[in-house]
Computed example of a mutant assay.
Amino acid sequence: MNQAELQKLVEEISLRYFHAPFKHEVKINNRMTTTGGRYFLKDHHIDINGHFLDKKYYADLVGIIKHELTHYHLHLAGRGYQHRNRDFKNLLAAVGGSRYTPDIGLRRRQNRNYIYECKNCHFQYPRVRKVNTKKYRCGKCGRRLTLIRKNK
């Protein structure tokens, strides 16, 4: 799906479910990893995660578009457009939009390079960064920690 097809799809969804036209621009953003879309308050354009444009994610894409259009139409109407607002929750449920973006494996995982262990209770603490064992102690028993594995 290209930019023009996505624009047309968003305009159709807006008319069908919200009974109001979408008069702004939709952009494809391939740099997104943790979110499906984003609505911009200043110029009212919508970014859509390019990874969801594949045909196998079509149902997820429609849910994401409904979510962003809910922000769009409520903001332009001067009503509560934020996730915590009742107006947003009610309209999102009414149009059948998705509340959360499904995880399709784009999120990065941090490597736990260091594993510390308590000398007394043997509780393990995986950490990304090195920890000063003279300064920090076990949160359970208060005893010293030792470095047991370093993956770097």
Rank of each mutant, 00 (worst) to 15 (best):
M1I: 12
A4D: 15
E5Y: 08
E5C: 08
L6S: 10
L6Q: 09
E11I: 08
E11Q: 14
I13V: 13
R16P: 00
Y17F: 13
H19R: 13
H19N: 11
A20R: 14
H24S: 07
V26W: 10
V26N: 11
K27M: 01
I28N: 05
N29A: 00
N30T: 06
N30M: 00
R31M: 01
R31Y: 02
G36V: 01
G37L: 04
G37S: 05
R38G: 04
H44D: 03
H45L: 07
D54Y: 15
K56C: 11
D60N: 14
L61C: 10
I64S: 12
H67T: 04
L69G: 03
T70L: 08
H71Y: 06
H73Q: 11
A77M: 10
G78Q: 09
G78C: 03
G78F: 09
G80E: 06
Q82G: 01
H83N: 10
R84D: 02
R84Y: 05
R84L: 03
N85C: 07
D87R: 07
K89G: 04
L91T: 07
V95W: 04
V95P: 06
G96Q: 00
G97N: 06
G97P: 04
D103P: 02
G105T: 06
L106Q: 14
R107P: 06
R108C: 02
R109K: 13
N113P: 03
N113C: 04
C118D: 13
C118G: 15
K119Q: 07
N120G: 01
F123V: 15
F123T: 15
R127Q: 13
V128P: 00
V131P: 05
N132P: 12
K134D: 15
K135A: 14
Y136V: 11
R137G: 15
C138P: 03
C138Y: 02
K140C: 11
C141K: 09
G142H: 12
K150I: 00
K150E: 05
K152P: 00
